[in-house]
Design a protein around this nucleic acid. Sequence first.
DNA 1: GATATTTTGATTGATTTTGACCGATAATGG
DNA 2: CCATTATCGGTCAAAATCAATCAAAATATC
Lengths: 250, 250
Amino acid sequence: MLTEERQQIILEQLKIQNIVKLHDLIPLTGASESTLRRDLQDLENCHKLLRIHGGAQNVISLHEEPALSQKAAVHINEKKMIGQTAANLVRNHEVIFLDSGTTIQFMIPYLIEHNDLLVITNSVDNASMLADYNVNTFLPGGKLKSSTKALVGANIIQTLENYHFDRAFLGTNGFSVEAGYTTPDPEEAAIKRLAIAQSNQSYVLSDSSKFSQVSFSRFATLDEVPLITNKLSENESIALSKYTKITEAI
Amino acid sequence: MLTEERQQIILEQLKIQNIVKLHDLIPLTGASESTLRRDLQDLENCHKLLRIHGGAQNVISLHEEPALSQKAAVHINEKKMIGQTAANLVRNHEVIFLDSGTTIQFMIPYLIEHNDLLVITNSVDNASMLADYNVNTFLPGGKLKSSTKALVGANIIQTLENYHFDRAFLGTNGFSVEAGYTTPDPEEAAIKRLAIAQSNQSYVLSDSSKFSQVSFSRFATLDEVPLITNKLSENESIALSKYTKITEAI
DNA sequence: GATATTTTGATTGATTTTGACCGATAATGG
DNA sequence: CCATTATCGGTCAAAATCAATCAAAATATC
């Protein structure tokens, strides 16, 4: 059995169970303990798993396998649909802005359908994923915010003022009729606001769980920017009904 | 059997299974080991498959980067030592530049020993890790290079020209007495060169396996920038002996 | 038909992978 | 707390695989 084959088996086992014992892998692969140890080491080095005493455990990574992240798992299918719906709005040869946030990240796999895109993003995580998918990507310079891995600060504001986008896709921490789209960090809000101003067309992507959530800084009202979401309840639909531009991804 | 015919068989086998062993191909094609090796080489050159030890693998998997992962796995302990040695050179309150590359990445865990650092890096991967370790980080804007996830291009050059660093830590693809420090991509070489120019003190970090490796673009000679490496063989030590600034991390 | 070019298969030594071993370290159970 | 057991990381030699070379065979060219 080849190295790659073994390592795939290990990762598959990890997907099924969340934890795998080294001893259980021996009969499963036919390899020796030493070899399997080395495999676990290799896989840990490329962040495919986390070694623990006696075996290995799934790494909860935003970037690698969103399916495995328990928090994200709840709305994962919604987010995939929203991502696909949003990506379908893009046309070939466009310049688009991608905000930070997990929902936006789900757009990326669908972007490869389009030719000759240029993506500008303020998210380091998104940038890394865009590179994986071989999408032309540009990062404006800025201070890195540790918690969200987004670029913020005066520098990026100044840079973005010189750019213009065909479309901007933004994440949000909450939306409601009264408060509009809101996010906790004023610096991130400032970037979102600027991205909207510099774009021909902007969209906010959010799964329905963010409905009626309100954070500190508003970056837009519901009239200003259409919402792409899905599976709204009847009450929610009625509340939002006058904002006609809302797209429901099914 | 014709060359074309053989290669077709290999690709068909790869479609069925995800991995194919070189030995299994011998009875399947009737060709010799050498010939099949050449076939695999040819097919890899036109990106139809990915060679692995003992056979070949489908190339379709977007997320997998076995080439990069395996590279990272090698020399891991050397790199840790080099990273620690390099990090010890840093003083509190300094502004430092971190190049892209796995070796440089190993510095990051040791940087948290220092207070009030500001790190500028052109690597998205490094940026992400720096955020994990809560290090003040700034990213200069630039085009994202997919293969290495490094920022390159005129924009980043222009930005860096306005900055000045206490220290710069650079990776390299190879070093030798005659060719100096070299790297395959001229654009990355330009950034390294500029980082050196803008720094009070620069260092190149490299494990000893890069000795006598030569790539396309030189970004510095061995006199200009000291090398931080380890475990040099006697011959290598003698060859490098006149470059007194070389540090061996033990 | 003679000669040049390409393809092939065998051989070589170098490199990588592997499994066994051992002392060090960590978890377990009294 | 200590003793016992299991797991860990490192080293080593054997085995497998690799890249490079070269001469024979096949093919192409004139």
